[in-house]
Design a protein around this nucleic acid. Structure first.
Length: 425
RNA sequence: GGAGAGAUGGCUGAGUGGCCGAAAGCGUCCGCCUCGAAAGCGGAUAACCCGCAAGGGUUCGGAGGUUCGAAUCCUCCUCUCUCCGCCA
């Protein structure tokens, strides 16, 4: 959510931003509603001041044992006027808030403007992926041959785009989760959490999934709960409606959770194998920090996420997203993409975003600044580190041998009971 | 699922119709003291909205209602705690 007075004072900038990021929004309507609201609010304030004065008079009269009847009568008529105006203001507030909640964040000045991913900028690349001297099998064939996951049965027990891992594949999930969590807690100083996978409407609104993207979420209608699409939601909402202490910032949190995405409207895209599934596992990083630190913390978080791929020795590149390719709530975003040689594609395995105060304003997350004694909104950041299925794809396709066996990345071996190579069953 | 109790500032907690934006304590900040600190003493300290300011307004879990007037009374909702039931 943007700051209303900022919007008011930077109309041209916001109008320009909405053109690319939310063309369906009628900005003039919005401004008109805002003006109306301010007019009514002023009237309401002065009426209330009158009422309060009358109220004091009544108190005084009662104390002096004089007759308060005439003052009570005039106060009654003021109260009626207030009632009318209050309901009007209530309606307007509702309208304004509804709009404000679907206005996307404005990109940071370092973000290039552009329509889609073609305008993204490559920041760096770990190494040039090397071409093997044998014919590569894709991850689906490898996975099936090695017996580590089963899409047909996933589809039988849940539906299409659900997967069941088995045997060494199941253990690989566990290994990846533990490896990633250990890396972030021991080497990068994040505090570990194990949050609920179901959250309420307020939480989903706080991080920006609602109200705009309700269609993309799995929802439990009877209880009005939502399956989390990412651990960002519960982790960020840990501090919803809280005032943090300046000296405890930045807070660095990490969690493994399953993630659930309906992927409504994306049928036909990436339908192959593990690239896009409805339920997947992910280790997430979340930070709360002071506004002046957020861009530095953003770069650090990116490095923390990259480190996982470095350790796994998976080729990757870092892209900076252009304005049109960024998510709704982000002010700046990097994607990390892992190389999948058999698919011949870079696969997004992480998205590292700085939301500035966009989520903090929605979720009311503040900190008390010592120098001023005032509370301010924090900046929130998050990044995947990493999403598992595409990492599995990258491992399978990069570490396969000519005979169809799979080399286990060195850092994972301790988590796989010392297993170094996975052979056909 | 049933019965009862509760929700007040950064935190704990008093307040049962007007003198309450709210006692007290903790915490925090400033000053005194000290070589410095601790302790002690004195003072300040909720958030938000409108306004250049003076000032005005809103907010006691949320939404309605009663009343001239609600933290306080009534209704509904949410959450927390205790007991019972069920259960991994």
């Amino acid at each position: 959510m943007l700051d209303l007075s900022y919007v008011r004072e930077h109309q041209d900038e916001i109008r320009q931003m909405l053109k690319t990021r939310a063309p369906e929004l009628n900005f003039d309507d919005f401004l008109r509603i805002d003006t109306d609201r301010r007019t009514y609010l002023k009237d309401l304030d002065s009426l209330r001041a009158e009422k309060n004065k009358a109220n004091d008079q009544i108190t005084q009269l009662l104390k002096e044992k004089k007759d308060p009847k005439p003052t009570i009568a005039s106060m009654k008529s003021i109260a009626q006027k207030i009632d009318v105006l209050e309901s009007k203001v209530g309606e307007i507030n509702e309208k304004l808030n509804q709009i404000l909640l679907i206005v996307p964040n404005k990109p940071h000045k370092s973000v290039k403007s552009g329509e889609d991913s073609s305008k993204n900028i490559q920041i760096r690349q770990s190494e040039t992926p090397k071409k093997p001297d044998f014919e590569l099998k894709n991850h689906i064939e490898l996975g099936q041959n090695l017996g580590i996951f089963d899409l047909v049965r996933g589809s039988k027990i849940a539906g299409s785009a659900f997967v069941v891992y088995s045997g060494h594949g199941a253990r690989l999930q566990r290994a990846l989760v533990n490896f990633m969590l250990d890396t972030h807690t021991k080497d990068h100083g994040y505090q570990e959490f194990w949050p609920p996978a179901l959250v309420n409407r307020a939480s989903m609104t706080g991080t920006g999934q609602l109200p705009k993207f309700e269609e993309d979420m799995y929802r439990l209608r009877d209880d009005d709960l939502f399956l989390i699409p990412t651990a960002e939601v519960p982790l960020t909402n840990l501090h919803r409606d809280e005032v943090l202490k300046e000296e405890e910032l930045p807070l660095k949190y990490t969690a493994y959770t399953p993630c659930f995405r309906r992927e409504a409207g994306s049928y036909g895209k990436d339908t192959k194998g593990l690239v896009r599934v409805h339920q997947f596992d992910k280790v997430e990083l979340v930070k709360f920090c002071k506004p002046e630190d957020s861009y530095e913390e953003h770069e650090k978080m990116l490095k923390d996420a990259e480190k996982v791929l470095e350790l796994l020795k998976i080729p990757y590149r870092v892209m900076q997203l252009c304005s049109g390719d960024m998510g709704f709530a982000a002010a700046k975003c990097y994607d990390i993409e892992a190389w999948a040689p058999a698919l011949g594609r870079w696969l997004e395995v992480s998205s590292v975003s700085n939301f500035e105060d966009f989520q903090a304003r929605r979720a009311n997350i503040r900190f008390k600044r010592k120098a001023t004694g005032k509370s301010e909104l924090v900046h929130t950041l998050n990044g995947s580190a990493l999403a598992l299925p595409r990492v599995v794809i990258a491992i399978l396709e990069n570490f396969q041998n000519a005979d169809g066996s799979l080399l286990i990345p060195e850092v994972l071996r301790p988590y796989m009971g010392g297993l170094t190579i996975l052979r056909k069953v």
